[in-house]
Design a protein around this nucleic acid. Structure first.
Length: 837
DNA sequence: GGAGTCTAGAAT
DNA sequence: TTCTAGACTCCA
């Protein structure tokens, strides 16, 4: 038996399977999807089995053995292995990179080189310097030591150590270790049968009162109990219990446990709520496709507060009833405790929760529950789309339009596309839910034609279009809150230079009097932390990147967000030596200060990157706000999503248009989405809500449409714009960024690259007789023209129908292989990019 | 990605 | 002619 293995070496040359012999002892363990250790070159690396075969491609004599299998259960399924190949081709990355993205970070291999001392003669030590002698003694005492540790402990002896290894005086072994182990818990087991406890109690000397307590406890609770729990409950030391174990009366064993981040929380079980007629209709469509097991993509356009979550919950229930599994994807930022609570409340411990706030160990354990088949539902951010289920029936993407579904580093996949691909494999349903669907999705969605439902279904399946489902009404008929647009230009003209307009100021004051609560939103982008001299206007920027430095109040330093460069905060301007250098805190900090000035005594909770980085901080602030321990919740995007507080009657957007001026063709769409989302936070319960939007461009259609809650007009106008300027959804794009330390070489190469792509397309056209509709824009300097002392140029490739464009790009990129190696040129490819930086 | 190997130019 | 640094190649 032989296995094809993708090895953990991300390079062009090793981006293909290698054949290995499976030793007979390992045959039961090696499956497609297994994680194995294999000898590669002169070391051992991790790899994934992607195929099993009886006839290898290479002469059998040349093959090496698989060194070992790393997990009891394969971390990947055959379906995921196949998906990995698809991801690597679609998004142009190495296959190993795609496979690694599917497993938790805890399983990323940690390679260790262990050094051990070989037998030697005392006389050989005569020539050593004292330091080396010390090193020998250390090795002797320790047995084997990781090479890195040894070099660190004895700096300057690195060369000598290597020489010893070369000469065979030290032997070297490689090991692959997981970053996180499984958690073991010492557990106390009563004897078998437990009746023996009576007898032991009798034998116990009278002075051993503590040990008697332990025996008594076990007599009344004859079950295994964690040692820590027992000692805490009875107030005895671990030694007391160990004493009993030493007598052989009870036993203490290590038991593997899951780290459960929600262990100490009780979730109130909830029953399904009655559905409104609209919800009923939507649920009916999803339910039909689940029952028939046909793959279908639904775009669920439901206004904020229309009860999408309840539809999700009941659809999942239906999916589980059919014996299948479900994945729920939410944007990282909206994976709030409230959200988790709803799912845990309905499905209890059938749910695994995966998000970035968990420790690596917790994440691994939640994920392992899926591989071991202990849960049926996974809820999490982007990467949860790879949850290793084998009977998937339903994938839900909530807030489908969110840009966080697109991964920004390799593999640069979009969770929506991966979800659809997986669902097609399983004959599963996908539900894309949003109050503000992305234009890409909306353009692909078609409404049901009531007169020919069946014929319509077939046409839909053939065209790969989405089925549009609409929910226009809010639950219990609460109206959407009125949105007031405040023109900040006229505020300025009237002499108001504060960041609060008079209408918003008055509204906040009113809430304070009425003891109601306010949510204030500040767009982070365009308002972030920077350092500027008020005398000469000089801004501190990174010496290695073309970007301004950001100020971190906590460490009193300025930092570069891209390369990590940091310097201490300066007292005077480095340019003109003026003392009027101003450290602008985060935008939210400034707003907080101003609030305190305008409304003395106001209680503000500020939520931004700074205040929520700590584990559990997010939850703590929201609980405080829910308990009305603050008047205002002030924050960045994270306060716009999914929060639901009955006492909030006012929402203020400080500056609605900070994004509009960014070089981003989705700027209008993002502005509209954010405003619509945040407006939905007000007046969700019996108190009526109100929204104030401050802006310098009140006439912009994204602001206007959002204030009227008018999605259709917005989409209409925006689609016109996109068509006019030839942007998605009217074309597809691939962004290729080239970077190098020297501009002349970079420009030359980028130009050759652009020409090469065109060349390859016309060669292909000549071969097939089909003309390509591809066009190549650029090369031009990237908006961030330098990062880590490397200049950056980009080419934007647009196309509509030509399906082989990514293949052409791949060819073009690989034709620059020599340059990449020789000149340390870097080429990065982003298919369907979100950021054109 | 990493190590052994090849090769061209500099030091001897 | 020997030494050494950087490029090249291969890994099953």
């Amino acid at each position: 038996m032989y296995a094809k293995v993708i090895v953990d070496v991300p390079s062009r040359q090793t981006n293909r399977p290698y054949d290995y012999f499976v030793p007979p002892a390992l045959i039961p363990w090696v499956e497609v999807g297994s994680r194995v250790g294999v000898p590669f070159g002169n070391r051992t690396v991790q790899g994934f089995v992607v195929d099993l075969t009886k006839r290898p491609d290479v002469a059998a004599g040349k093959l090496k053995d698989i060194a070992g299998v790393l997990d009891a259960h394969p971390p990947l399924t055959p379906e995921l292995v196949e998906l990995g190949r698809w991801v690597s081709r679609t998004y142009l990355c190495h296959e190993i990179t795609a496979l690694q993205a599917m497993i938790p970070g805890a399983l990323k291999a940690k390679y260790e080189r262990l050094v051990r001392l070989e037998p030697y003669e005392e006389s050989e030590l005569a020539f050593l310097v004292p330091r080396q002698l010390e090193l020998i003694r250390y090795l002797e005492a320790k047995g084997s030591v990781p090479l890195d540790d040894l070099i660190q402990r004895y700096p300057g002896e690195g060369e000598w150590i290597k020489e010893q290894i070369r000469k065979g005086r030290f032997s070297e072994t490689n090991s692959i270790r997981d970053r996180v182990g499984r958690k073991k818990l010492l557990t106390v087991y009563p004897p078998e049968p437990p009746e023996l406890l009576e007898q032991y109690a009798g034998e116990l000397p009278a002075r051993a009162a503590r040990q008697k307590d332990v025996l008594d406890y076990l007599r009344s609770n004859p079950h295994p109990v964690p040692l820590a729990e027992l000692t805490k409950k009875l107030g005895v030391g671990a030694g007391t219990v160990k004493g009993l174990a030493d007598k052989g009366w009870i036993s203490i064993r290590e038991v593997e446990v899951f780290r459960d981040p929600y262990a100490d929380r009780d979730f109130r079980r909830t029953a399904p709520l009655p559905l409104t007629p609209e919800q009923e209709k939507v649920f009916g469509s999803i339910s039909r496709s689940l029952t028939n097991s046909v793959h279908r993509v639904f775009l669920l356009h439901g206004v904020t507060g229309s009860g999408k979550t309840e539809v999700y919950l009941q659809s999942i229930q239906q999916c589980l009833d059919l014996g299948r599994e479900a994945i729920v994807l939410v944007p990282e930022i909206s994976l709030t405790p409230q959200m988790v609570e709803r799912f845990k409340g309905r499905f209890g411990d059938q749910v695994a929760v995966l998000h970035s706030r968990l420790s690596q160990g917790e994440r691994y354990d939640e994920w392992r529950k899926i591989t071991l088949g202990q849960v049926k539902v996974a809820i999490g951010a982007r990467s949860a789309v790879f949850a290793p289920f084998t009977r998937l029936g339903l994938i839900i993407l909530d807030e489908e339009h969110e840009s966080s579904y697109k991964q920004e580093d390799s593999p640069k996949y979009h969770a929506r596309e991966v979800a659809i691909r997986r669902a097609r494999y399983f004959g599963a349903a996908v539900v894309l839910g949003s109050a503000t669907p992305s234009l890409e999705s909306y353009a692909r969605a078609a409404e049901e034609k009531p007169d020919h439902p069946d014929a319509d279904e077939e046409a839909l399946a053939a065209s790969r279009k989405y089925r549009l489902l609409v929910m226009k009404d809010r639950v219990e008929g609460r109206p959407l809150p009125p949105v007031h647009i405040v023109d900040m230009r006229s505020e300025l003209k009237d002499g108001n230079r504060s960041m609060f307009s008079r209408p918003l100021y008055n509204a906040i004051e009113q809430r304070l009097q009425r003891k109601e609560q306010t949510v204030l939103l500040l767009n982070r982008r365009g308002y972030s932390t920077f350092v500027m001299c008020r005398t000469c206007g000089y801004t501190l920027s990174c010496p290695h990147c073309d970007i301004s430095l950001t100020y971190h109040q906590s460490s009193q330093a300025v930092r570069c967000h891209y390369c990590g460069y940091a310097e201490r905060q300066a007292q005077v301007c480095p340019n003109c030596a003026s003392e009027h250098i101003r450290y602008f805190g985060t935008g939210t900090q400034r707003v907080e200060e101003e609030l305190a000035k305008l409304f003395p005594g106001i209680r503000v909770i500020r939520m931004d990157i700074d205040t929520t980085s700590e584990k559990g901080a997010h939850e703590k602030w929201l609980t405080q706000f829910a308990n009305q321990q603050a008047d205002v919740l002030l924050g960045t995007q994270m306060v716009a999503k999914g929060l639901d507080f009955p006492n909030v009657t006012l929402v203020g957007v400080i500056a609605a248009d900070t994004m509009l001026n960014l070089p981003d063709f989705r700027a209008a769409e993002r502005t509209f989405q954010l405003m619509t989302q945040v407006a939905g936070r007000a007046g969700r319960h019996h108190l009526p809500g109100e929204v104030f939007v401050q802006t310098y461009t009140p006439e912009h259609y994204s602001v206007q449409c959002a204030s009227r809650h008018d999605f259709h007009s917005f989409v209409h106008t925006e689609l016109e714009m996109r068509k006019l300027r030839d942007y998605p959804p009217y074309c597809r794009m691939i962004l290729v960024t080239l970077s190098h330390e020297q501009i002349p070489l970079l420009v030359r190469t980028a130009e050759t690259f652009a020409a090469r792509v065109k060349e390859m397309a016309s060669a292909e056209a000549a071969r097939t007789g089909v003309l390509s509709d591809m066009e190549v824009l650029g090369p031009v300097a990237s908006p961030i023209s330098r990062i880590k002392d490397r200049y950056r140029f980009q080419c934007l490739i647009k196309y509509r129908k030509d399906t082989s464009v990514s293949e052409r790009v791949r060819e073009a990129v690989s034709s620059f292989d020599d340059l990449v190696r020789q000149e340390r040129l870097q080429i990065s490819v982003d298919v369907d990019p979100y950021l054109l930086m």
